[in-house]
């Protein structure tokens, strides 16, 4: 699972009002190279919760993202490269996603988060 997907996911257990961001428990992560497309990044930027991306990347040992970001930075190639790497090339392979409100743990195996809810969570 890429951090792009992590940045979109929110816990939807019944009654949870703030299920974002899911905390990452990283046992294993992998890097996969992806073609760079600055238009996509510029388009995506407005939808990204920056803080969550910074923290998620950090949990995989990637510290290059600036703490704060605004759209003026999209003119910098250097910034875009880092954004690209964090968003699309870092994958959570084994570990878990943890709901920030309930602490519920969604296990991640072979890169696939198990988001199935228990009966009483629906």
């Amino acid at each position: 699972m890429r951090l792009l997907t992590h940045n979109m996911l929110s816990c939807n257990i019944k009654g949870v009002t703030n299920g974002f961001p899911l905390r990452l428990e990283v046992e294993k992560f992998v890097e996969k190279e992806v073609e760079f497309n600055s238009d996509f990044l510029k388009n995506m930027f407005v939808k990204i919760e920056w803080k969550a991306l910074v923290n998620a990347a950090r949990s995989m040992g990637y510290e290059e993202l600036p703490e704060e970001a605004d759209s003026s930075m999209l003119d910098s190639d250097e910034f875009l490269k880092k954004f690209h790497h964090a968003l699309l090339e870092l994958h959570l392979e084994e570990g878990a996603l943890i709901c920030p409100e309930t602490g519920r743990r969604f296990p991640v195996n072979k890169g696939i988060p198990n988001m199935l809810l228990h009966e009483d969570e629906v």
Partner: peptide
């Protein structure tokens, strides 16, 4: 990216 998930939930 893949998610194990039930759309009915």
């Amino acid at each position: 990216d893949l998610l194990l998930s039930d759309m009915g939930q």
